[in-house]
Every structure is written in structure tokens, then in C-alpha cells.
Design a protein around this nucleic acid. Structure first.
Lengths: 239, 239
DNA sequence: GTCTATAATTGGATAGAC
DNA sequence: GTCTATCCAATTATAGAC
């Protein structure tokens, strides 16, 4: 296997910092099979391990509350080795954030005017709560970044997020126009959906302090899905 | 006036660090009129200025993202002077947090079983949104602290918050039992109310990026109150 | 009470050997 | 690619004069 590493790997071998920096900037999407040499796999794997460790710490203690040393320790690499893969602390932080936005926006893409709104929204609530259960770190870091004014996501917020929300707002408007939904402002509806579902990740400590339970418990998870769906869809007025 | 400062002030004059430390620990509630000498007023005033400055910075950048120097600069005192009033950075931070919990819990106390649930909840939503509009810093810092696992509020969460929520949950249960409210779990309802109303403070940047508006605009504020009330009370299903 | 040093520590980042 | 050693900047906190 090592012998099969061809031109790409050889080229990478001579290249040191500069090419690695270029690599670092590429978003971690799927790559063309030809480019996936064994060496590049190792590099990507290590980057992933570091990114995962960084997410766990940044999401709890923030950028300034986390030291490079701590991330390195959790990823089981040395500090200087980490700084070989990421030029500096901020680049590491931004790399983590970048991967986040995709996860965050994904569920909303599902909405389309042909769907039944009640089913679509019920499904959306469940999907978001699954994320709050399985990826609370991602949710928390996103929240942290927002609270701080999202200095590093501001540009993307202005574009990607806004575009998506605008498109989905049209879907909601169409539902309302067709009489399939009570008259509600699309923006406020989307905010409500985001807020309630994220709450169970961001305020997990509070939820646990009050109820004594977490989404990790299947029974509590289902109970939560059911209640959130009912509140948003039916409201709480007596029928 | 200075001459009227009697025994209490004189006692304070000789006492230096120790007594000031003791003073620092006292929660900033109303004090007996006799104890409010002119000197103590000055001390309390200065503490308040520092606390306000600290809230503004901690709520944006967190404990570690804020330096004592920055707080001092914003409060218009020197760093060492600040450290005369607060033993260290953490004591300052905890002092800010302490004042917060009261603000945070206040609106919920209003609930009582005799009220009409729809009116009570509508009023609650408005009150919380007023806080999100007028005291977004408080909301954000509270959120920051929760995300980090509330290491400094954990104890109080376990008691004060839990007790209050338990009592108000009984009120909600009574409303449901009386058929005045659709069957909903009190905890999830309270979480939903908290989440949606806080969202406009904590995610203000996102709200602004998407809608181009803020709660500071009276029209947008009223529109928000109206939509949140409708979503929670009526739900979004077509009637 | 307030200020001017200054001590003491942490933590990000680099240099250079291997 | 990885490590050790080290530099350097930023900050917390204290000492001590006024």
C-alpha cells in the first residue's frame, strides 16, 4: 500500500507549511477519490480528531476560556504538533465554526410548499431535537458565537443564512395564503422553532436541574418532542 | 453633611480591606436607613458603576474574554482601584451573576391559579420581551453561564429556581385540571416561554441579520409580542 | 481610597533538532 | 511530522508611596 502512493503524495511530501495551509482552508467536504492518498487520509483524520476535541472545549469554555494546550491534550497530540496542522488558535476556532453552520442549517432545507405544513413542522421539530440530543456541543458553540455578536460568522449570516430563511419564509407564506396555516409571520415562527428546540441543548443544565432528566433518556426525549409539537401546532388554549 | 457621619461611618473608616470584603459579600438589596451614611453611599455607587461595566463586557466576551483592565476603563476607574472594591476578577464576576438571578426569576412569580391563564401568559410574554429589549446584557450573561454548565449558579439553580418552577408548575397543572388550558406539561411550557422570549436578546444579531430590525423599534417590538403570544396561545394550525 | 510600579504566571507562537 | 526549548505578549494581583 505505501508504495502505491503516487504523484500527489510525493508532491505533498516535499511541500511543507504553505501547502498544508492551503489544505487547511479547504472546507471538509467530500474529496475526489484520486486525491485521497493514504497520507492525505492520515492528515485529514488527525485534523478531524483535533477539530472534535476543539469543538468540545470551545463549546463549553469559549475561545478565550480554552487553551491550545487543553485542546492538544484532549486530542492526544502535542501543542506544537497541533500548531502544525492549524496555523494558530483562531484558525482552529474558525475551522470548527465553519463545519457548524452546515449542520445548523440543514434541517430547514427540507421545507417545501407542496408538503403538508403540520407534518413538515412536526418533522422539523423532531429533527432539531435529535440534533440537540446528539450534538449539543454544536448547538452550544453556535449559541456562544451568536451571543458574542458572531464576529466570525457575520458575513455568512448576512448571506447564506438570510437567503435560506428568505426562501423558507416564502414557503410559510404560501402555506398561510392557502389557508393551511394560521396567519403567522414566517420570521417569528422560524425563530420560535429554533429557540425552543435549541433550548434543550443550550440550557441542558437548567433542564436537568428542574426536571431531573435529559434528552438522552428515550422517554423524556419523546415526551419533549410531543409537547413541543403540540405547543407550536395547537397552541395551549383549551379547545 | 460630612460632620453628621456618625459611629457607623467612623467604624468603617478605620476598617480597611477586611470590612470592605465583608461589605462586598452582602447582596445588593435594600439596607437599613441608619446604615446608609454618605460614605457607604459613595462606595455602593462606585460598586454599582463597576458592576454595570462588568455586566456589559462579561455578557459579550465572557469571563475569560474580558480583562479587568477593560472593565476598569469602561467604569472609568483604574485597575488597582477596581481591585480595591472587588478582591479579584472572579468575585466581580460572581457579584454580577448574583444580581442577575433575581431579574431573571422575577416575572415568573406573577403566576397564580386565580388568574385567567391566557391573560397571565400573554402578560408574561410581554414582560419577558421587555427585559429582552431593555436588559439584553443580563439575558446574554445568563445564557453564557448556562452554556458553560453554570458552575457558579449550580447550587442556586438546584434550590431557588427549582422551587419556584415547582410552585408555578402546580399553577399550570391547576389551570389544565380546570379545563382552562389544553393539556400540556408545565415544565415544557415554561421552557418554551423562556426560550422564545430570550431568543430575541441572545440571538439579537441573528434576528437583526434576518429581519433587519431590532426590539428597540416600537413597531417591531409590538409585532414580536403579538406573534409570540399568538403562536403560544393559539398555535399555528389553521382554525 | 487612589495611584505607580512590579512581581508572578499563563499561554500563544516560533526555532531548530531529529 | 513531531518534539524540546524558548521567546514574548498579555494579565492578574500585590506592594507600597501618597
Amino acid at each position: 500500500m505505501p508504495k502505491t502512493s503516487g504523484g500527489a503524495a510525493a508532491a505533498l511530501k516535499t511541500a511543507t507549511k504553505p501547502s498544508l495551509r492551503a489544505l487547511a482552508k479547504r472546507p471538509s467536504g467530500p474529496r475526489s477519490p484520486a486525491a485521497v492518498s493514504r497520507r492525505m487520509r492520515q492528515i485529514e483524520d488527525k485534523r478531524s480528531v483535533i477539530l472534535a476535541a476543539a469543538l468540545g472545549l470551545f463549546s463549553r469554555y469559549g475561545l478565550h476560556g480554552t487553551s491550545v494546550d487543553q485542546v492538544a491534550a484532549r486530542a492526544d497530540v502535542s501543542k506544537s504538533n497541533l500548531l502544525y496542522y492549524f496555523a494558530n488558535k483562531e484558525e482552529l476556532y474558525v475551522s470548527v465554526l465553519r463545519d457548524l453552520l452546515a449542520v445548523w442549517l440543514e434541517p430547514l432545507r427540507g421545507f417545501s410548499a407542496e408538503q403538508d405544513p403540520r407534518e413538515a413542522i412536526a418533522a422539523y421539530i423532531r429533527r432539531k431535537l435529535v440534533i440537540s440530543r446528539d450534538q449539543p456541543d454544536a448547538s452550544r458553540l453556535f449559541c456562544l458565537e451568536m451571543i458574542q455578536g458572531a464576529p466570525l460568522l457575520r458575513d455568512e449570516l448576512g448571506r447564506e443564512l438570510r437567503d435560506l430563511v428568505d426562501r423558507k419564509s416564502e414557503v410559510v407564506r404560501a402555506w398561510v395564503a392557502a389557508g393551511k396555516l394560521a396567519p403567522v409571520d414566517p420570521h417569528h415562527l422560524i425563530f420560535a422553532l429554533w429557540a425552543i428546540t435549541q433550548h434543550y441543548a443550550d440550557f441542558a443544565v437548567q433542564v436537568q436541574a428542574i426536571t431531573g432528566r435529559t434528552l438522552a433518556e428515550p422517554a423524556f426525549f419523546e415526551e419533549t418532542v410531543d409537547n413541543v409539537q403540540r405547543i407550536v401546532l395547537q397552541g395551549i388554549s383549551a379547545s
